[in-house]
Structure formats: C-alpha cells, structure tokens
C-alpha cells in the first residue's frame, strides 16, 4: 500500500498568509481584466478609426466623442436634454411601478382578481407600448406626460407579473403561521405578502428600469423636440454621429447608475437575503 504524506509547512500562519496574499493578487488580476476589456476595445476603435481602417464617418474616434461631449456640455444644451429625459424616465418609471406593484399584489393575494386580470395582463404584455405611441400622442398630445405614459406602459408589465409571482411563491407554511397566530388581513398584507414578495418584485423593478431606458430613447425619437432620444435622432439625421454617440454613452451611463442604485436599495430593503 502506498502512503501519501502531504507536508504543508513548518509555519502554518506564514503559510496561510502567503496563500491569502496569493488570492488577493488573483482578485486584483480579475479586476484588471474587467477594466482592461473596455479600454482595449476603445483603444482599438481609436486606432482603427484614426487609420481609417474603419470608416471614421460612422465610427468617429472615441477621443473626438469625448471632446464633443465636453463641448456639448459646456456650450450646448446637453444638460437640459439630460434633465428633461431624466424627468420623463423617473416620472414614467413611478407611473408604471406603483400600479404594477399594487395590481401584482392583488393578483397574487386574491384569486378572483387573479382570474380576472392575469389573462388580460398576459395578453397585453407582448404589445410594445411604442406601437401605441400614436394613440398615446392623440390622447395626451406631444407632452412630457405622453412619454411618461409610454414608459409606464412598458415598465408596468414586468413589475406586475414579478410581484404577482413573488406573492404566489411565498411558502404556504407562512400563510399557515400567520393564520394560526391570528393575523388579520392588514397584518397579513404588511407582514407576510409584502415582504415575502419583495425579492422577486425587486427583480421585476430592475427589469422595468432597463425597459424604461429602452423606451425613452425610442419615444423621444418619435414625438419629441427635446431629450436624449431626440438628440440621438437629430444628430443621426444631420449625420453628426459624434453627437449621436454622446447620447448613447449617456444612456449607457444612466443604465449603469440606476442598476447600482437599485442594487443598493435591494440590499437595504431585503436585509434577510444573502
């Protein structure tokens, strides 16, 4: 029989410290990779564009986009476009999220509501709200509110469906616990249904946030004379592609920022989840 003897080290602490340092180094390495990939792509783009290996009219060098960004921010009315878009996004977001949560909770909690509204929600969900823009504009005019309604229409569905799923996925044992310990319906709502559905609901809100950004750009392309979407569309039509890219970068930044904000909120609202 063969015996295998593993000798770690004569000084266990030093040995483990070395291992720990190694793992730290590895973490740094991974972080570098994450940083490295966009930088490489941007650098490559810069070089290819400057050497005209790709058409600089369609793909202007990133450095010129940055210059354009600063230029628009200082001289132009970029900030007013950003502010108006942000206003519409937030307005539309809450206009969709709040009814989405409410109806979702009702669908999850009450069977009659579920059987009345669930099929309706499912049937309406695949219709892109953007396709309804003309109708929305007829009803609400070319106003900020019509953009908000369009965004709300897209945000509503994932939030509503996720909230309903969140409630119906609550383990029935907690319903039994609440019942056995005499919870009234108000207590049941605030102590069981609402917190129990929060994790899945937040996923829906995260999805809604992404959809809101997709929608605002398109909505502002169709019927607006301000906002990021309008900027992108006008610069595209005027063939000022540098300006268009500025708009795209801003939208990307919005998405990143909102995601981080929501993740932060999620950690605060759902402290029991690890």
């Amino acid at each position: 029989m063969e015996k295998e003897v593993i000798l770690a080290a004569s000084q266990p602490i030093a040995y483990e410290r070395k291992k720990w340092e190694k793992s730290q180094k590895k973490q740094n390495y991974y972080r570098t990779l994450t940083l490295f990939s966009p930088i490489t792509i941007l650098a490559l783009w810069e070089v290819l564009s400057r050497t005209a290996l790709i058409d600089p009219r369609f793909f202007p060098p990133p450095s010129t986009i940055i210059v354009e960004f600063v230029h628009l921010a200082v001289n132009g009315n970029l900030s007013s476009h950003v502010m108006i878009s942000l206003y519409r996004i937030l307005g539309g977001f809450f206009l969709g999220v709040i009814p989405g949560i409410l109806l979702g909770l009702l669908i999850g909690m009450y069977k009659p509501v579920r059987y009345t509204f669930q099929p309706l929600v499912m049937a309406l969900m695949p219709i892109p709200t953007l396709a309804l823009m003309p109708i929305i504009i007829i009803i609400f005019g070319i106003t900020d509110f019509s953009k908000m309604v369009t965004i709300a229409g897209s945000v509503f569905f994932p939030v509503c469906i996720n909230t309903a799923a969140g409630v119906s996925n609550i383990d029935p044992i907690f319903v039994d616990v609440a019942k056995n310990y005499g919870a009234k319906s108000k207590d049941y709502f605030f102590k069981i249904a609402l917190p129990g559905s929060l994790p899945v609901m937040m996923e829906g809100i995260q999805m809604g946030q992404a959809i809101a950004l997709l929608t605002i750009v398109a909505a502002e392309m169709i019927g607006a004379n301000s906002g990021i979407g309008y900027l992108i569309w006008m610069d595209y039509k005027a063939f000022i592609l540098k300006g268009m890219y500025v708009g795209l970068v801003i939208i990307s930044f919005f998405g990143y920022f909102f995601s981080i904000l929501l993740r932060f909120l999620q950690r605060r609202l759902i402290p029991w989840q690890k």
Partner: peptide, 26 residues
C-alpha cells in the same frame, strides 16, 4: 398555538420579531 416544522420561522423577520409574532398579532 402551533409549533411548525423547521421551515415555520419567517425568513424576513429577525429571531426577535419571530418570537414576538404571536403577541404582536394579537
């Protein structure tokens, strides 16, 4: 009052809130 199987403690309440649950409900 019923003592449920292991899954009966409510995950979104702290230990303290769980223990106080019945008293709070009534």
């Amino acid at each position: 009052s019923m003592i449920f199987q292991e899954k009966g403690v409510i995950p979104w309440m702290t230990v303290e809130e769980n223990v106080a649950f019945g008293l709070r409900m009534r």
